[in-house]
Amino acid sequence: MISLTDVTKAYPTQSGLHVVLDNLSCVFEDKVSYGILGVNGAGKSTLLRLLGGAEHPDAGKIERSGRVSWPIGFAGGFSLALSGEENCRFVARIYGADFDEVIEYARDFADIGEYFHMPVRTYSSGMRARLAFGLSMAIDFDTYLVDEVTAVGDSRFREKCKHVFTERRERSSVIIVSHELGTIKQYADRYALLRRGKLELYDDLAEVEKLYKTAA
């Protein structure tokens, strides 16, 4: 479970303070998958970094119970100079997981062949996302934070993602952010719209769809 109380986050920009999250309070419950919709720049990635704890709110409090993943997606996380395998080893080490298991799972899942032993610098963004996804699924989390990642790869990879999500949903929750309605529809049980620094939760997809279309 992750609960936010009066969370505010702003970034200084050249034209003054840009408020990304404005006095936000909400609760993400266990074993429920949330899909958060937002247009580009609405603050989806920032929200995920705050939920994971990599960044801290300017004001307010975020409480977590259980293990929360890092935001899984295209951006960041890998050392470009190290190989995929070495990156997996590092992550397994910081999370106290078994190296061999994590490496094997991530290699199988990412399915990037010989690239697994080459520096991440040489990867395409799709390959990075596949590795990021495989690596995070190799470690047991209570909540997975996902940043658009499933939109990448071919249909076989997407099928694999869907399969693993369905299997995980029984014991973990997933919070996925996207600007695509389709992604959210596919993976989430509950829906939310992030706009103007606020997050509105809905049970009904049709309602979000309507609001999102007028917002976008």
């Binding site: 970094r49 994971g52 704890g53 990599a54 929360v68 890092w70 935001p71 951006a75 960041g76 996380g77 890998f78 050392s79 470009l80 992550v91 910081i94 999370y95």
Partner: peptide, 10 residues
């Protein structure tokens, strides 16, 4: 080390 700070543990 910005890419590493991506992991909340670090």
């Amino acid at each position: 080390n910005r890419p590493l700070l991506f992991y909340p543990h670090v």
